[in-house]
């Protein structure tokens, strides 16, 4: 691991991001549909208006021209305008960034904070009562889709008990403590649903990789040296078991930006995921392009970070 390596990897990231952007743009341009769904069935809108709209958005130009136009603007920091709302794409994203970070970020953190200790403890005593319970929840967590768990929570906590609101709004009433309480209250269900879903698979991975490590010779050696079980677990096992976990977390972190489309839809969380899905349904190419491109930058960045972390977790890994 050297600064030379880091520099080289960062330099490689530029052409690879460019390549990704070309593919993204091509996929979006070729994908069927256009931004004027409802206009089509409205008998009062003349056909020439629809055609003029397409032309004014440049939808009839060749794909490579549209790509270079996008790239050139992007290089100058111009993210373009949404076809649908005519608002600039960076503004649309920024409007939704705080909510996304708050809700999805919180659920990611929750998932990691819960999954790692639970996974480690479950693996430390496999097939114990604790392990069985943890496993059952994990299986339920990823067998049931979020549209289902979300609805279940709504029925119990909003409809039956009337404790939590169904709708997540950025305009919660109140001030001071009331405001904070309102803001937290409405985030409980979406964060739980997402946290459970993401945490569930993570628990399984952590458990499995701790199990792999725990039986390796050096762990037995450490034990035979009389080091306490807890210390063995934390110092020797977890660090070595973290490689797959780091990989997974690196894979999941960009989701903070990509959003969680289904959960955002159920609770009406105005995050980037819901922006992305409505943009996709409306074929609003500049918005999809903006969001996915930032998303792919994060994917590349976090995977790079993971590579660097591997070296720290296991110094024998030498990436050149």
């Amino acid at each position: 691991m050297s600064s030379d390596f880091l520099l080289r990897r960062l330099l490689i990231a530029i052409p690879s991001l460019l390549g990704i952007s070309v593919v993204l743009f091509t996929v979006l341009a070729l994908a069927p549909g256009d931004p004027f769904g409802e206009l089509v069935t409205n008998p009062n809108v003349p056909a020439e208006v629809r055609l003029a709209l397409r032309a004014s958005l440049g939808l009839d130009d060749p794909i490579y021209l549209r790509y270079f136009r996008w790239l050139w603007a992007m290089l100058q920091g111009d993210w373009g305008f949404s076809f649908v709302s005519r608002m600039s794409v960076d503004r649309l994203i920024l409007q939704r960034l705080p909510t996304t970070v708050a809700v999805i970020g919180a659920s990611q953190i929750l998932a990691i904070m819960v999954a790692i200790p639970v996974g480690v403890l479950a693996a430390a005593k496999p097939y114990s009562m604790f392990d069985q319970i943890a496993n059952t929840f994990a299986f339920i967590g990823f067998s049931l889709p979020t549209f289902f768990t979300g609805l279940l929570l709504i029925l119990v906590f909003s409809v039956q008990l009337d404790w939590l609101p169904i709708v997540y709004s950025t305009e919660v009433g109140g001030s001071g403590l009331t405001y904070i309480w309102n803001a937290v209250r409405q985030a409980i269900m979406p964060v739980t649903v997402l946290g459970l879903f993401q945490g569930a698979s993570l628990v399984r991975y952590v458990r499995s990789s701790v199990l792999e490590v725990i039986k390796l010779d050096f762990v037995t050696t450490a034990r035979s040296k009389g080091i306490g079980e807890r210390k063995v677990l934390v110092l020797h096992v977890v660090r070595n078991a973290l490689i797959p976990v780091v990989t997974l977390v690196a894979l999941q972190m960009p989701i903070v930006f990509g959003g969680a489309i289904v959960t955002e839809q159920i609770f009406r969380v105005p995050g980037i995921g819901s922006l992305l899905i409505s943009a996709m349904l409306a074929n609003d190419t500049p918005v999809i392009m903006g969001v996915t491109f930032v998303f792919s930058c994060l994917v590349v960045l976090f995977n790079l970070l993971a590579d660097i972390l591997y070296g720290w977790l296991d110094p024998r890994i030498a990436l050149r």
Partner: peptide, 13 residues
């Protein structure tokens, strides 16, 4: 719906 109700010339659906 986003494909069905669109004026996309290229899409047969």
């Amino acid at each position: 719906a986003s494909v069905f109700f669109s004026s996309d010339v290229a899409n047969p659906d």
